[in-house]
């Protein structure tokens, strides 16, 4: 366990070394947040109570999205590029002979990364949004830890999806196509562009049960107090179930990939 703590701390520090990149990211998130916020204002002026959100909730949704964008890696940008590169170049061989579990290793590193990006790239855009706009904030203090737990589960789901994508490099060698596909799906189905309740009919229902809703839609709804009591447990259970299912799928794919490497050579 201490090993994975060191790996997570390393993941945190690796991202912390790139201060300029972090500053640039914060700037982008903030600008992007302003653009989206004005778009939402126009939208909610025309259609108040759209999707069951009032204006201040819709604006809060925008800034939560910007705050979580990097941490939940909704547009990629986590460990997966590095892992795919290691698979492509064969450096993965080095990882395989070490006495560590590949998936846990990368999960720990990614949690460290997410922790840094939640602080480094999440807090400032949230503050900027709260100062510039009238956004809905949690009515009671317990919502904050409830929100953070939901974010944590979202990060694990995000990791599990990206782990699967990265392992595809064992077969595809060039994982760029898979990455872009995952990026597009993540951007849309996490609710990054528009909250999922706004999608009509079947599309909306499908979007809500896909794993990506764990990344933003559910944490944002927890923040906005949409879940109370038992509903909150159900929301966690939904996120947790996807996390477990996708992590198991990742394990399965990992053992197939490892066997392939072990038998077929790098």
């Amino acid at each position: 366990m201490r090993l994975y703590a060191v790996v997570a701390a390393g993941g945190f520090r690796r991202y912390a070394t790139y201060r300029t990149a972090t500053a640039a990211g914060v700037f982008t998130n903030t600008v992007f947040g302003f653009i989206l916020a004005y778009t939402y204002i126009a939208l909610w002026d025309a259609r108040p109570q759209l999707g069951g959100y009032d204006m201040s909730q819709a604006l809060a949704y925008v800034w939560i999205g910007q705050g979580l964008l990097a941490a939940c890696a909704m547009m990629g940008g986590g460990f997966e590029d590095e892992l795919m590169e290691r698979i492509r170049t064969g450096d993965i061989a080095v990882d395989l002979y070490r006495p560590v579990d590949l998936q846990l290793w990368w999960l720990a590193g990614d949690l460290g990364r997410a922790a840094f990006q939640l602080l480094g790239r999440g807090v400032v855009p949230m503050l900027a949004g709260a100062l510039a706009f009238d956004i809905a904030l949690p009515g009671s203090a317990w919502i904050w830890p409830a929100f953070l737990l939901s974010v944590l589960l979202g990060i694990v789901v995000s990791f599990a999806v990206r782990f699967l994508v990265a392992l595809s490099a064992f077969w595809l060698l060039d994982g760029a196509g898979a990455t872009q596909m995952a990026w597009l799906l993540g951007l849309f189905f996490s609710g990054m562009l528009l909250p999922l309740p706004l999608f009509p009919g079947l599309l909306g229902e499908v979007a809500r049960v896909l794993p990506w809703s764990s990344l933003l839609q559910i944490p944002a709804d927890v923040f906005l107090g949409k879940y109370t009591g038992w509903e909150l447990m159900e929301a966690y259970a939904f996120q947790g179930a996807w996390a477990v299912a996708l992590l198991l799928a990742g394990r399965l794919l990992q053992s197939v990939a490892t066997r392939r490497v072990v038998v077929q050579g790098g």
Partner: peptide, 13 residues
């Protein structure tokens, strides 16, 4: 194990 052309070290740290 030391692979001369690969590294086990953390690149950024």
């Amino acid at each position: 194990v030391v692979f001369g052309q690969r590294t086990t070290l953390w690149w950024d740290l």
